[in-house]
């Protein structure tokens, strides 16, 4: 299976994985082929990887199946990993009309202030609220922007992680 991967440094990789017996795989990357042995240690994220004899303790966490955090030898890499179908679907979605968006709390905490009201038009990445946790203030921003359809919280309110804060409708097309 072919995979397209992108790291937080902006580098892009194209790999082809073929499964062999049990936990063995062969990886095609560029013009190289690497033999891999890969096991799930504890079903909690720890894995043991051996690539052409080089051994690594790898830890993997996923926020969803395409977004992975991979820790190798103490360094953490944020990776978007897509197969061919997902990459194609992504390409189609990015060309389509803007989508509606729900801005969620990035962590549990208290809403210190709200920067928007219903009807406001937001640019992509515009701040919508300030969230406080552990005595630190964190700005919550929208991703795609749009028109504020509904404000679901009030200043001073406690929120859970991933709690919806603001509903946005797609910005009107020019």
């Amino acid at each position: 299976m072919k995979y397209f991967l992108k790291t937080q440094s902006g580098r892009e990789f194209e790999l082809e994985i073929s499964a062999g017996n049990a936990d063995s795989y062969s990886i095609k990357i560029g013009d190289r082929t690497i033999q891999a042995d890969f096991t799930d240690v504890d079903r909690l994220g720890q894995h043991a990887a051996i690539f052409d004899g080089r051994s690594f303790a790898a830890s993997i966490e996923e926020s969803d199946e395409q977004h992975l955090l991979v820790n190798i030898a103490g360094e953490t890499f944020t990776i978007i990993a897509q197969d061919e179908r997902e990459k194609a679907a992504d390409a189609v979605a990015s060309q389509g009309p803007p989508r509606a968006e729900v801005v969620k709390a990035s962590m549990p905490g208290v809403i210190v202030s709200l920067a928007v009201a219903a009807g406001d038009v937001l640019e992509p990445g515009a701040p919508v609220a300030v969230l406080e946790a552990m005595k630190m203030q964190n700005e919550v921003a929208c991703l795609h922007g749009g028109v504020v359809e509904e404000v679901l919280i009030e200043a001073g309110q406690s929120v859970e992680a991933n709690q919806p804060l603001i509903k946005l409708a797609p910005a009107p097309q020019e």
């Binding site: 995979y3 990789f13 890969f38 990887a49 690594f56 199946e65 992975l68 190798i72 360094e75 990776i79």
Partner: peptide
């Protein structure tokens, strides 16, 4: 540390997805 850890991490991620 080795210089190619990013590439190693990418290979780990791809195999992880394949297995999932």
């Amino acid at each position: 540390l080795p210089d190619d850890l990013e590439e190693i991490a990418v290979m780990v991620a791809a195999i992880y997805r394949q297995r999932a």
